[in-house]
Protein backbone atom coordinates (compact mmCIF):
# COMPACT_ATOMS: atom_id res chain seq x y z
CA UNK A 1 0.00 0.00 0.00
CA UNK A 2 2.74 2.37 0.88
CA UNK A 3 5.49 2.99 -1.60
CA UNK A 4 8.55 0.84 -1.06
CA UNK A 5 10.52 2.08 1.88
CA UNK A 6 14.26 2.12 1.98
CA UNK A 7 14.98 -1.36 3.21
CA UNK A 8 17.53 -0.58 5.85
CA UNK A 9 15.37 1.93 7.66
CA UNK A 10 12.59 0.41 9.66
CA UNK A 11 9.62 2.65 10.33
CA UNK A 12 8.62 3.09 13.90
CA UNK A 13 5.10 2.45 15.07
CA UNK A 14 3.47 3.27 18.37
CA UNK A 15 1.46 0.28 19.50
CA UNK A 16 -1.59 0.55 21.71
CA UNK A 17 -4.47 -1.65 22.70
CA UNK A 18 -8.15 -1.35 22.09
CA UNK A 19 -9.87 -4.11 24.05
CA UNK A 20 -7.88 -7.25 23.30
CA UNK A 21 -6.48 -6.05 20.01
CA UNK A 22 -3.19 -4.39 19.45
CA UNK A 23 -2.92 -1.56 16.98
CA UNK A 24 -0.05 0.43 15.61
CA UNK A 25 0.19 3.93 14.16
CA UNK A 26 3.05 5.78 12.54
CA UNK A 27 4.94 7.35 15.39
CA UNK A 28 5.67 10.47 13.38
CA UNK A 29 2.02 11.40 13.70
CA UNK A 30 2.19 11.28 17.48
CA UNK A 31 2.66 14.60 19.22
CA UNK A 32 2.35 13.50 22.81
CA UNK A 33 0.73 10.99 25.11
CA UNK A 34 -1.22 12.23 28.06
CA UNK A 35 -3.91 11.31 30.52
CA UNK A 36 -7.55 11.72 29.69
CA UNK A 37 -9.17 14.57 31.53
CA UNK A 38 -11.42 17.57 31.36
CA UNK A 39 -13.13 16.95 28.05
CA UNK A 40 -15.86 19.36 27.09
CA UNK A 41 -18.76 17.73 25.33
CA UNK A 42 -19.76 19.13 21.95
CA UNK A 43 -23.36 19.18 20.88
CA UNK A 44 -24.48 17.13 17.91
CA UNK A 45 -21.37 15.00 17.90
CA UNK A 46 -21.37 11.24 17.43
CA UNK A 47 -20.83 9.19 20.53
CA UNK A 48 -17.19 8.45 19.79
CA UNK A 49 -16.29 12.14 19.65
CA UNK A 50 -15.85 12.72 23.33
CA UNK A 51 -15.49 16.45 23.06
CA UNK A 52 -12.84 19.11 23.13
CA UNK A 53 -9.72 19.47 25.17
CA UNK A 54 -7.33 22.30 25.70
CA UNK A 55 -3.84 21.32 24.66
CA UNK A 56 -1.71 24.26 25.69
CA UNK A 57 -4.13 26.72 24.21
CA UNK A 58 -5.06 24.65 21.20
CA UNK A 59 -8.59 23.34 21.23
CA UNK A 60 -8.66 19.85 19.81
CA UNK A 61 -11.30 17.16 19.51
CA UNK A 62 -10.96 13.82 21.23
CA UNK A 63 -12.08 10.61 19.57
CA UNK A 64 -12.53 7.45 21.55
CA UNK A 65 -11.41 4.71 19.20
CA UNK A 66 -12.79 2.10 21.56
CA UNK A 67 -16.28 3.38 20.90
CA UNK A 68 -15.61 3.93 17.26
CA UNK A 69 -14.48 0.32 16.71
CA UNK A 70 -16.67 -1.11 19.44
CA UNK A 71 -13.69 -2.62 21.18
CA UNK A 72 -13.24 -2.96 24.90
CA UNK A 73 -15.12 -1.02 27.52
CA UNK A 74 -15.07 2.70 27.15
CA UNK A 75 -14.28 3.44 30.75
CA UNK A 76 -12.42 6.47 31.91
CA UNK A 77 -10.16 6.43 34.91
CA UNK A 78 -6.79 7.80 35.82
CA UNK A 79 -5.14 5.13 33.69
CA UNK A 80 -7.02 6.05 30.51
CA UNK A 81 -4.57 7.26 27.93
CA UNK A 82 -4.96 9.80 25.19
CA UNK A 83 -2.60 9.88 22.23
CA UNK A 84 -2.38 13.35 20.75
CA UNK A 85 -1.80 13.21 17.02
CA UNK A 86 -0.71 15.96 14.72
CA UNK A 87 -1.67 15.10 11.21
CA UNK A 88 -0.94 17.75 8.65
CA UNK A 89 -1.42 20.48 11.25
CA UNK A 90 -4.73 19.12 12.50
CA UNK A 91 -4.50 18.10 16.11
CA UNK A 92 -6.69 15.37 17.50
CA UNK A 93 -6.62 13.23 20.59
CA UNK A 94 -7.48 9.55 20.46
CA UNK A 95 -8.47 7.59 23.54
CA UNK A 96 -7.11 4.07 23.78
CA UNK A 97 -6.97 1.46 26.51
CA UNK A 98 -3.24 1.54 26.92
CA UNK A 99 -0.07 2.43 25.09
CA UNK A 100 2.34 -0.48 24.77
CA UNK A 101 5.51 0.03 22.89
CA UNK A 102 7.38 1.58 20.04
CA UNK A 103 7.89 -1.09 17.39
CA UNK A 104 10.33 -0.72 14.49
CA UNK A 105 9.02 -2.46 11.42
CA UNK A 106 10.56 -3.05 8.04
CA UNK A 107 8.19 -2.85 5.09
CA UNK A 108 8.58 -6.56 4.41
CA UNK A 109 7.30 -7.32 7.90
CA UNK A 110 4.01 -5.76 7.04
CA UNK A 111 1.45 -7.93 5.33
CA UNK A 112 -1.32 -6.28 3.36
CA UNK A 113 -4.61 -6.02 5.18
CA UNK A 114 -7.20 -8.61 4.16
CA UNK A 115 -10.55 -7.55 2.83
CA UNK A 116 -13.24 -7.83 5.47
CA UNK A 117 -16.19 -7.19 3.30
CA UNK A 118 -18.82 -4.58 3.85
CA UNK A 119 -19.08 -4.89 7.62
CA UNK A 120 -15.67 -3.45 8.29
CA UNK A 121 -14.03 -0.85 6.18
CA UNK A 122 -10.52 -2.13 5.71
CA UNK A 123 -9.41 0.97 3.88
CA UNK A 124 -8.29 2.44 7.24
CA UNK A 125 -5.93 -0.48 7.69
CA UNK A 126 -2.45 -0.15 6.44
CA UNK A 127 -1.54 -3.76 7.02
CA UNK A 128 -0.82 -6.41 9.61
CA UNK A 129 2.46 -7.18 11.27
CA UNK A 130 3.63 -9.99 13.47
CA UNK A 131 5.54 -8.84 16.51
CA UNK A 132 6.60 -11.50 19.02
CA UNK A 133 3.75 -13.72 17.92
CA UNK A 134 1.26 -10.94 18.50
CA UNK A 135 -0.65 -9.48 15.64
CA UNK A 136 -0.26 -5.75 15.29
CA UNK A 137 -2.93 -4.01 13.23
CA UNK A 138 -1.41 -1.02 11.52
CA UNK A 139 -3.88 1.76 11.14
CA UNK A 140 -3.85 4.43 8.48
CA UNK A 141 -4.74 7.04 11.05
CA UNK A 142 -4.61 9.89 8.58
CA UNK A 143 -7.23 8.29 6.40
CA UNK A 144 -9.39 7.35 9.34
CA UNK A 145 -9.46 10.75 10.92
CA UNK A 146 -10.22 12.48 7.69
CA UNK A 147 -12.91 10.08 6.67
CA UNK A 148 -16.30 11.57 6.09
CA UNK A 149 -17.66 8.82 8.29
CA UNK A 150 -15.89 10.13 11.36
CA UNK A 151 -17.23 13.62 10.61
CA UNK A 152 -14.45 15.22 12.54
CA UNK A 153 -13.99 17.97 10.03
CA UNK A 154 -16.19 19.96 7.76
CA UNK A 155 -17.22 18.16 4.56
CA UNK A 156 -15.08 18.62 1.50
CA UNK A 157 -17.06 21.46 -0.06
CA UNK A 158 -16.42 23.68 2.94
CA UNK A 159 -14.27 26.63 2.00
CA UNK A 160 -11.85 26.56 4.88
CA UNK A 161 -10.75 23.12 3.88
CA UNK A 162 -7.05 22.49 4.04
CA UNK A 163 -5.38 20.98 1.03
CA UNK A 164 -4.53 17.71 2.62
CA UNK A 165 -8.13 16.94 3.32
CA UNK A 166 -9.07 17.18 -0.29
CA UNK A 167 -6.37 14.64 -0.95
CA UNK A 168 -7.68 12.30 1.72
Amino acid sequence: MKPQEIKQNPREYLSFTLGDEEYGIDILAVQEIRGYDAVTRVPDAPEYIKGLVNLRGTIAPVVDLRIRFKLGNAEYDHLTVMIVLNIGGRIVGIVVDSVCDVVPLLPEQIAPAPEFGASFDSSYLQGLANVNDRMLILMDIDKLLHSAELALYAPAESQDLPQMMAAA
Binding site: A38, T40, L52, I59
Partner: peptide, 27 residues
Protein backbone atom coordinates in the same frame (compact mmCIF):
# COMPACT_ATOMS: atom_id res chain seq x y z
CA UNK B 1 -12.19 33.33 21.62
CA UNK B 2 -10.47 30.37 20.05
CA UNK B 3 -11.49 28.98 16.76
CA UNK B 4 -13.08 25.61 16.88
CA UNK B 5 -12.61 25.05 13.22
CA UNK B 6 -8.85 24.90 13.38
CA UNK B 7 -9.03 21.30 14.50
CA UNK B 8 -12.67 20.44 14.35
CA UNK B 9 -15.69 21.12 12.23
CA UNK B 10 -18.16 23.87 12.74
CA UNK B 11 -20.84 23.24 15.32
CA UNK B 12 -24.27 24.78 15.04
CA UNK B 13 -24.86 27.58 17.48
CA UNK B 14 -21.25 27.71 18.56
CA UNK B 15 -19.10 30.68 17.64
CA UNK B 16 -15.94 29.26 19.05
CA UNK B 17 -14.52 28.12 22.30
CA UNK B 18 -12.63 29.60 25.16
CA UNK B 19 -10.43 28.18 27.82
CA UNK B 20 -11.64 28.49 31.37
CA UNK B 21 -9.44 29.30 34.29
CA UNK B 22 -9.09 25.64 35.16
CA UNK B 23 -7.95 24.75 31.66
CA UNK B 24 -11.22 23.29 30.53
CA UNK B 25 -12.81 24.26 27.26
CA UNK B 26 -16.10 26.13 27.22
CA UNK B 27 -18.18 26.72 24.12
Amino acid sequence: IKSLEAHYRRVFGVAGATILGDGRVAL
